[in-house]
Each structure stands twice: as structure tokens, then as C-alpha cells.
Amino acid sequence: MRWRAHLLFMKNIKILVWFSILLLLIPAIPAQAAVIKTAVGVSSAFVEKTGTVNLTVFISSDEKIAGGSLDILYNSDQVRINANDVKMTDTLSPYLSSGGSDAAGNVSLSFAKSTGSVIDGTVMEVKATVLTLGSGKVNELKLENVELYTEQGKKITTQVIDGQIKPFTGKEKTHANPVANDKSWVVTLNSSYNPATLNAQAVSVKRGSIVVPVEVKGVSATKFRVKPVGTYPRGTYTMDITNQLRSTNGAKLSKPVRFTFKVN
């Protein structure tokens, strides 16, 4: 009986180990008094060699936004983004907008309409060609001049999440046994996260280099769920959790996490 209880306990531990990814949150940014509910970011991409990589620019807010602007600065000696490599998504279709790449180190976006709306999604897709991996093998995608406005013209306080193009250097884990094709993963953090930063850029699932559509949804202050939109076809998948997921006080993940699992 005692032996069975021990076995059950060990099994629970195992489940916890495999089904939860304990993510250490290092306070890299000073603690803030209130959670910034609006985030603007450019996605990070993990690449091991030169070539093309798809990036996204996202805005997540529960506040109504009537307009705004941003610049993404990059090193044009290391990364090439031509004018036709930048596309606005339908998220901003109700807005008057402008933007694109000057092909010399700056991608810009500006948009406006007469009334405010909640924006939560990808606003721009960028195809970048990595010419060389930069110093420390990191190509920075730095967001500058980020300004979001309400309908009244008031500036909205925004958490800005810069992106990077770099080789993966985080924690890697592999799930031992194959899982069902509708597998729903619940990821547990050891401190609460900022929901504005929980999105398809911070948490993504890929099959090879193909991004698989998943639903990323908060479960509690410290947990979120990742499940497929539909089902996973048979194959091997990697779930990347980048350090673009921020804690409520703005802290980054100490290291990105890559979790590999197999679907039968």
C-alpha cells in the first residue's frame, strides 16, 4: 500500500516534470507599480544559419487604440528587409495606415482612425533575410518611437518588446512518450505573467520550420494552455517559449525554452 502511494507520488512528480515547464523569471527590468496592459512587440526568431525568416509585429491591448506609430531598427549590414518584404495584416484594416521598410535599417508603421478599438494580434508581417549573424550571433530588432493613442489623443503606456534573430541557446526538453493529436499542454510559471505578452509570438509550435496554428490561452495568473487549432498531424513538434513572455513586473524569462514532443 505504502509502495503504491510512493509510486503514485513519483508518477505525480513525473507528470509535473513533463507537463509543466518551470520557468525562472529573472527581474531584468525594474519592478513596476502596475501591470502595463498594453504591449507592442516584434517577434524573435531562432535561426542557426543565414537565410529567410518570418517575423511579426504585434499589438496586444485591452485599451481602445485610435492610432499609433512605431519604428523597428535593425542592422542593414546583417539583415535585409526590402520594401515588398513588409505586409500589413487585416488587423489594421479599419485604420488608415502607412509604413514599410526603407531597406536601410528601419521598418515603420503608423495608423489612425477616428474612434478607438481594442487591438490584439499581428499588425505587420516581415520577411527578413539574414545575411550574417551579428555580434554574439544576435541580430537585434529594436523597437523605437512606439506611440499609441486613445481616441482622446492621450498616450497609452506601453510595454515594448524588442525582437532578436539568433540561434537557439535556451533550455531544451523532450517529452518521452508520444501524445494524442489534440494534446493540450498546460505550462506553469513560478510567477505571474503579463497577459498582454502571452501570444503566438511568445509561445509558438512548429513542425520542422512550419509554424503550426495553436491557441494560447491563459488559465490562471501563472498558467497558460497551448492546444492545436484542430489536431496535430502525426509528427515531431517543438514548442518555443521565448523571453518575450514577460512577468507582471516586466521581467523576462532567464532563457527561452524549447519543448519537443511527438504525436502519433
Binding site: 499609433g68 488608415l96 503608423s110 489612425a112 477616428s114 506611440e147 493613442y149 489623443g153 498616450k155
Partner: peptide, 20 residues
């Protein structure tokens, strides 16, 4: 337009509101 001392998206918002 709105007193930001430079052109901003806030000016574009204000112009789009001008009709009403």
C-alpha cells in the same frame, strides 16, 4: 494639430474626427 510639437498619429486621429 494637437500640440505634440511634431507630427504624430494623434494628429491624424484628430483630423479624422474633424467631421463630427
Amino acid at each position: 494639430v494637437v500640440g505634440n510639437n511634431k507630427p504624430t498619429a494623434a494628429a491624424a486621429i484628430r483630423i479624422l474626427q474633424h467631421l463630427n
